[in-house]
Computed example of a mutant assay.
Amino acid sequence: MINLIYAAATAFIITLLIGPVMISLLRRLKFGQNIREVGPRRHFEKSGTPTMGGVIILVSTVVPVLLFTDITPKLFWALFVTLSYGCLGLLDDSIKIVADRSLGLRAMHKLLIQILIGGLLGYNVLYNLNISSELIIPYLGTVIDLGIYFIPFVILVVVGTSNAVNLTDGLDGLAAGVTIIVAITYTVINLKFGNYDLAIFTTSIVGACLGFAWFNSYPAQVFMGDTGSLALGGAIAVAAVLTQTELFLVIIGGVYVIEALSVMIQVIYFKLTGGKRIFKMSPLHHHFELKGWKETKVVIRFWIVAAILSLVGLLGLQGI
């Protein structure tokens, strides 16, 4: 158990040590964030803030894992998905900077790579890690066997979660704070199921995100970019897949789900009504900003909702 604390503390300290160096380097390289013209006007003052800070999170997560536990097959795939999505995000961020635009990789290219990584995870979970195709149903303590639909379902979970975290990363400290809460919850779940190696992994994420929040809190000195948000989404998704708690993730990661749904609802409603909107702007956090809430209020209230949903999700484990 003590290694869990060591892992989180090490991740936190590494982040604090390399953060200023990385931020300074990103500033010198002029790797600044491009702000979408359709976003809230107050966000234009953030233009030029260094992005790609997710590299800090990746380094701070991986090092403690290597130091405090052995690389088991499950842990290998957890790291593989996290780093693969992080590299995809790094490529996306790099294109944005080089092309000097707010959009990076073409959406279809990005989605195909995400699907490929998710498919590799699903196949290996089913055939090499000897994890069954059953999902635990929250509160009921029963399972449902997906059979041949397991791999497509894993792809949906991984791709959906990574993109949902990406959408959540729109305000200073929002994605990092929510992910801290979700990762703590999955540390508890991993310990309950005896996955000590994965508990080290998730607690390292907690420490890395805590350290990153030091620099990403309002007003942010650095943004995680797609490098961080896609990697964190992949990490949380793989933690759910490897513990067969994908259905719990819908509750525990409810803030991610709500953010993603707000975008889908907005787009569908916009197309069906010829240009009308349900929300002032999506994702949902921008809606509350445009209603007059200060950025810090939106962030803190979303953290509170994330904490409540995590507790509700953990209650679903009773009797399992």
Rank of each mutant, 00 (worst) to 15 (best):
Gly228His: 08
Phe76Ile: 09
Val222Gln: 00
Thr15Met: 12
Tyr6Glu: 02
Ile117Glu: 12
Gln114Asn: 03
Phe68Tyr: 15
Met264Thr: 12
Gly19Val: 06
Tyr85Met: 02
Thr227Phe: 03
Phe193Leu: 06
Val62Ala: 09
Ser229Met: 12
Phe44Lys: 11
Met108Ser: 11
Arg106Cys: 05
Val38Met: 14
Tyr139Lys: 07
Leu314Cys: 08
Gln318Trp: 15
Val159Phe: 04
Val305His: 03
Asp169Pro: 01
Gly173Asn: 08
Val38Ser: 15
Thr296Leu: 13
Ser282Cys: 14
Tyr149Gly: 02
Gly319Tyr: 03
Leu156Glu: 08
Asn128Arg: 13
Arg36Cys: 14
Val21Ala: 13
Val182Ile: 15
Ala176Pro: 01
Ile131Glu: 08
Tyr256Phe: 12
Ile181Glu: 07
Thr273Lys: 01
Ala307Lys: 09
Leu156Asn: 06
Gly194Asn: 04
Val182Phe: 13
Leu249Ser: 05
Gly118Val: 07
Phe302Gln: 09
Leu26Trp: 00
Asp172Phe: 14
Thr168Gly: 00
Gly122Arg: 00
Ala175Leu: 03
Ile14Gln: 01
Leu129Ile: 03
Leu105Cys: 03
Lys30Pro: 02
Gly319Ile: 03
Ala164Lys: 03
Ile320His: 15
Ala239Arg: 01
Ile148Lys: 04
Lys74Met: 11
Thr15Ile: 10
Ile14Gly: 02
Ala235Asp: 04
Asp92Arg: 01
Asp197Gln: 02
Met1Phe: 13
Ser204Glu: 01
Leu120Trp: 08
Gln244Val: 06
Gln114Pro: 01
